[in-house]
Each structure stands twice: as C-alpha cells, then as structure tokens.
C-alpha cells in the first residue's frame, strides 16, 4: 500500500462526493417534481460511490505505518485522531480533511447556477466517468475493479440523463439554446483537467491499478462532440484550461462547500451521530 494509491482512491472518491453534494443542492428546488426526484437519485448514486471509496481509502490509510500516516493529512483534527492511535473512517475522510487534501477536479465543485450549467457539468463529468470506470474495471486492485463495475451501471444512466438534457435544452427554445451554449462554453475551461495525467495518475497507471487518461482523451472528446452536435451547440473554443484540483489547488467554491459540509463534525468533534 502506498500513499500514492491512497491519493488515487481519494481523487475518485472526492469527485463523487463533491459532485453528489452539488446535485443534492437541487433537492426541493428542481424545475419539476419528476426531475427533482431523478436528479436526487443521481446524487444518491454519487454519494454511495463516495462512501464505498472512502471506506476503502480509510482501510488503506489505517494500514500505513504511523510515521507515514502523520505526513499524509495536515488538518489538526485528523492529526489528533492519528496521535490518539485510533483508526479513521469514511466520515473522518470526508469531514476532517482540509481543502488542500481534497483531490477532486475543479469541474465538479462549480456552482449549479441553473439547469443548463448543471446539465453541462454533468455531461462533461459523466462522460469522463463512464470511460474512466470502464477502464477501472480492469484494475489489478480487486476492490477498485469491483466498485468500478457496480458504479458503471449507475454512471451509464447518469450519462444518458445529462446527454438528453443538453440536447433538449440546446435544441429546445431560443432561450434554452442560448443558456445551454453559455453553460457549455463557460465550463469548458474545467474539462482539460479531466484527462490530464498528474503524478498520481501516472504512477497508478504504471502499477496496473489506474486508468490511462491519455487514451480517454479522444473517446471523451468524440462523445462530447456528438452530443453538442445533436444539441445544435457550437463546440467551445479550445483555450486555456484550469488545472490544480487533482493536486489540491481548488477554486474558491470548495472552501464554501467544505465549510458547510464539515461544519457539524468540526464544531462537535468526537461524537456519534
């Protein structure tokens, strides 16, 4: 077990958690009841995936030698648990890590804004996820492979949901077309990071555990191109891509997400809920 692998698991888990968090913000506020329910199902899927992955990450973490453990996460709250010699669990992973120890891509933390932004963000992410989990099924890590296999069924459904909405809005009314185009173009700057190999990705791919993101690039772009085309949307212009999430450098959004999400655990430490 390596710290590298731990970070890899966390990358996947953090994507799922933060994406689920954003989608869950729609619950009770959707444009129509049926879609409120549909989107919450998707949020629940992401949350479920995050939990399996955090449980696995915690297991991995607890097996590390103490000296290594102390170096991985710097938050005082986690340091205190490690100093006490206790094992950590899924909730410690989600609620006690600081922002710089979160490795999700910048895309998933972007605000919901409206149904078009939500659909575009989902389309970009779900399409990546679909190909990513397809590859991860072949991981030499059996747990990851099993999680990938289970998640893939859900992700296939997510991708269908987001593709259909992007098409509907793009090819719907003049207003929806305009909004959809704006969302697709704005969020484009956060898509470059999806298939960029950072150190963790490279090491895990080399070890036979991770997915070759270079291979995903064209698959992702082709799939997205098709959907945008059917949606009568213009392909966003290639330009500067925002990076850093996978290495813990985030947009301003993550701080607010964590402040809200972690508030209970941070305010009332060491309690059962």
């Amino acid at each position: 077990m390596s710290v590298q692998k731990l970070k890899y698991i966390l990358q996947i888990a953090d994507n799922a958690l933060i994406m689920g968090h954003r989608l869950s913000e729609w619950c009770g506020h959707g444009p129509i009841l049926e879609q409120d329910i549909a989107l919450t199902n998707i949020a629940l899927d992401h949350l479920g995936q995050a939990r399996s992955l955090y449980q696995y990450a915690a297991e991995q973490f607890n097996e590390l030698p103490r000296a290594e453990q102390e170096k991985v996460f710097t938050s005082p709250a986690l340091q205190a648990i490690i100093a006490g010699g206790q094992p950590i669990d899924e909730d410690d992973m989600a609620y006690l890590r600081d922002g710089w120890d979160f490795y999700n891509v910048l895309l998933v933390e972007q605000a919901n804004k409206d149904w078009a932004y939500t659909a575009a963000r989902s389309l970009y992410y779900d399409t990546f996820n679909y190909h990513f989990y397809t590859g991860l099924q072949n991981s030499n890590d059996e747990t990851l492979a099993a999680i990938a296999e289970k998640s893939l069924k859900e992700v296939t459904y997510h991708m269908r949901w987001s593709s259909e909405w992007v098409i509907r809005l793009g090819d719907g009314t003049a207003e929806s077309h305009k909004r959809m185009q704006e969302a697709a173009s704005y969020l484009w700057q956060y898509t470059g990071e999806l298939c960029t190999m950072v150190e963790t990705d490279k090491a895990m791919y080399k070890a036979g555990t991770g997915v070759n993101l270079d291979e995903l690039k064209t698959k992702w772009a082709t799939a997205i191109g098709k959907v945008l085309d059917e949606a009568t949307l213009a392909q966003p212009e290639e330009g500067w891509m925002q990076q850093g999430g996978k290495e813990g450098r985030h947009t301003e959004h993550l701080g607010y997400i964590l402040a809200e999400m972690q508030y209970m655990q941070r305010t009332y430490p060491n309690m059962e809920w």
């Binding site: 609620y95 209970m264 809920w273």
Partner: peptide, 25 residues
C-alpha cells in the same frame, strides 16, 4: 442535506426528502 453530520445520515436524509417529493407526486 448539505450539513448532515455523517455520510450515512446524509444519504438517509437525501432519500427521505426525495420520498416526500414522490409523495407529492
């Protein structure tokens, strides 16, 4: 939902609130 103190509670609450949407429907 966004402030639930554990992941299990969060999942349960989300599913519960979603059920209420279903009841409305």
């Amino acid at each position: 939902i966004t402030r639930a103190p554990s992941l299990r509670r969060k999942a349960v609450l989300l599913a519960k609130v979603q059920d209420e949407a279903g009841h409305g429907l």
